[in-house]
């Protein structure tokens, strides 16, 4: 069984007080508690502060391009569905640069676990607005404040009938750890949008700002009621719900591909015995 030292990676280059530390800690804890070993996970990440995540733990890693985590993760999962495939992205990475891929990964329902470190800002590039920045927020690049409406990833995902949609908060570790585990256990694509203060560049959505607003979903809340979930998804402002907002039990992409019913693709050796017959078709 893996222990904390097995998961210790490089020393993080994040700013002191960054919300990413909270996510990093509970992610490791969740893996250990689920008895998952580092070599059984592949983390695909993009570029941004969030993208550095896999270097700070131990796991198989594909730290790819800005915005392109989901296609890489999809290729990996289709080739080896025994592997736990996690995608870690920033809000800019996943909702901006790679927005198209999010839509289609949800449609495919490939069993990739997507954790978005949503600090509502571009951290690595020093403080420009992201798709989830709130309207009116002023930055160097948005001197009149953000003019576009804030993207609501939760509502977007529910509209696409995403299999698992949750929101967490880096400041509520125990709760977030639970969401990570649920996301991993869910069969199909999981999106966990994690609110995370950027202490250096986002002076609006601070730790206190989030802390005052987030609340756990009521125990009687039914995440399988899509209409109710959509309503819940629209809640943002004075109160921000965290927890599993929507869940369904669609068949996954891997389950629907006949070639990998019995075994992952990567475990099936190449069989050239039919090539002569295939060549005959050209006559």
């Amino acid at each position: 069984m893996a222990t904390l030292p097995d998961y210790r990676g490089q020393h993080p280059a994040w700013c002191p007080g960054c919300g990413n530390f909270g996510i990093l800690k509970v992610f490791k804890d969740a893996m250990i508690e689920m008895d998952i070993e580092p070599h059984q996970i592949t983390v695909v990440s993009g570029i941004g502060q969030a993208g550095k995540f896999p270097h700070y733990i131990k796991c198989n890693t594909f730290n790819g391009l800005h915005g392109r985590t989901l296609p890489v993760a999809t290729g990996i999962k289709l080739s080896n569905h025994d592997m736990l495939v996690v995608a870690v992205a920033g809000d800019g990475d996943c909702y901006g640069e790679g927005g198209n891929h999010l839509i289609h990964a949800i449609r495919r329902n490939i069993s990739v676990k997507l954790f978005v470190h949503d600090n509502q800002i571009y951290g690595l590039t020093k403080g420009q607005a992201s798709p989830t920045s709130m309207e009116g927020m002023k930055t160097k690049n948005q001197p009149f404040g953000v003019l576009s409406e804030q993207l609501n990833p939760i509502a977007l995902a529910i509209a696409l009938d995403c299999g698992f949609v949750a929101r967490g908060f880096s400041g509520d570790g125990e709760h977030l750890k639970g969401l990570i585990k649920e996301a991993v256990h869910h069969k199909g694509f999981s999106l966990v949008d994690i609110l995370q203060p950027c202490v250096t560049f986002n002076k609006v959505n601070t730790f206190e700002w989030y802390n005052e607003r987030v609340y756990h979903l009521e125990s009687e809340y039914d995440p399988e009621d899509r209409t109710g979930a959509f309503k819940k998804a629209l809640e943002w402002g004075k109160r921000i719900p965290i927890g599993i907002i929507y869940r369904n039990h669609r068949e996954t992409l891997e389950e629907r591909i006949p070639m990998i019913k019995d075994k992952p693709l990567v475990r099936q050796s190449f069989d050239p015995s039919k090539l002569q017959a295939t060549q005959k078709e050209f006559y």
Partner: peptide, 13 residues
Amino acid sequence: IAAINMALGASFA
């Protein structure tokens, strides 16, 4: 963009 990134994912796997 997705096409080449998926293929790279598969190859990595």
